[in-house]
Computed example of a mutant assay.
Amino acid sequence: MFQLLGMAVVFGMVFGGFMLAGGHFDVIIRALPFELMMIGGAAVGAFLIGNSGKTVMKTLGDFAKIITGPKWKTQDYRDLLALLFLLTKTMKTKGVIALETHIENPKESSIFQRYPRILKDHFAVDFICDTLRMMTMNLEDPHQVEDAMEKQLEKHHHEASSPAHALQSMADALPALGIVAAVLGIIKTMGAITEPPEYLGRMIGSALVGTFLGVFLAYGFVGPFAARIKEIYDEEHTFYVIIQNVLVAHLHGNAAQISVEIGRGGVPSKSQPSFMELEEALGEIPAEV
């Protein structure tokens, strides 16, 4: 919602100020389709040149996140802590054999099935199961496990955040592409140097629309889009860091309830359950699970 409001403010303040200052839109309106074709088309072409097909498709698919925000909501963090509580408690109380039935086939696991949104996230499930599998193979050094998890998280975050870097590169290029369009407009104007001053003035105005459009799109929209998407990726990354914190705390010998309390401390403030809310969530888990 704030993003839509922000876009309306950018348009309203820039063009409203221009109009109140006595500016006329006729030159901008006439030049806009051609300038947009040159600048926008060149920006899209450069975007395709500089990025893999996977990054291009992911960028297009993730544009909705600018409005909807991170995919993990408050309930998802509670579910994650409850899931990790059940897994670590099972490992402590029932042993490795009981845990293996859950981590070898999580889709059939009675524990994972309680949390379908997490089960749909392949990386989260694989990250949890692979780490617990390392623990069952007697890799019990918390530092080694933490290092292995850190490398996985870094790789995943780098790959997931590629659209933010791609959009920022586009934002950086747009002002220069605006200058390219403006220079072409000046070249066109110089070819008509014998025309009356009124005609030349309109041509120069049309050329300057290119510079305006490049800077306006870069700093008014594409740059903020990149910053917003990066912010969302960073927050979503926190979800996986919580998994790391809980499992490492478990390896240090903490009880399951202490481990998830350590994880709760890393939940973003707006989504963080209180101590009592987490207690209630854990208390609602049926005894047979």
Score class of each variant (00 low, 15 high):
Q144D: 10
P106Q: 02
C129I: 00
E146D: 12
A124H: 07
H156R: 14
Y77T: 13
S161E: 08
A160H: 10
M91T: 04
K107T: 14
E108C: 12
K71W: 07
T136Q: 01
T68E: 05
I111D: 00
R133W: 03
V125T: 15
L81P: 02
R117M: 09
R133N: 02
R117A: 11
L84D: 00
K94W: 05
I128D: 00
A98W: 07
E100M: 11
M149Q: 07
I111F: 04
Y77L: 15
H158D: 06
S109P: 14
P163G: 02
H122N: 14
A160C: 11
I67H: 04
T90I: 08
M137G: 09
G69F: 04
E108Q: 15
K155E: 06
L99Y: 00
L87T: 05
W72S: 06
M135Y: 03
E146P: 03
Q113K: 15
C129S: 09
G69M: 06
V145S: 02
I128F: 01
P163T: 04
D147M: 12
K73Y: 12
L84M: 13
S162V: 06
V145P: 06
N138Q: 08
R117V: 07
T90K: 13
I103A: 00
F85N: 04
S161Y: 00
D141R: 09
F112M: 14
K120A: 15
K155I: 11
H122F: 13
Q144S: 14
L84S: 01
R114D: 11
F85T: 06
E154N: 09
D126P: 03
A148W: 02
P70A: 08
D147I: 12
A148M: 13
T88V: 12
L87V: 06
V96M: 01
Y77Q: 11
F85H: 09
D79T: 08
E104T: 10
L132W: 01
W72N: 10
I66D: 00
N105M: 10
M134E: 02
V125A: 12
D76V: 07
K89Y: 04
Q113R: 15
K71E: 06
M137Y: 08
L119S: 10
C129T: 14
F112G: 09
D126S: 14
S110E: 12
K89N: 11
K92V: 12
M134Y: 02
I97R: 06
L81G: 01
M134K: 04
N105E: 07
P163F: 00
A82N: 05
A124V: 11
D147H: 12
I67S: 05
A148I: 13
V96I: 14
K89S: 08
D121S: 10
H156S: 01
A82M: 07
T88A: 05
F123E: 07
E140D: 07
T131E: 01
K92D: 08
K89T: 03
P142S: 07
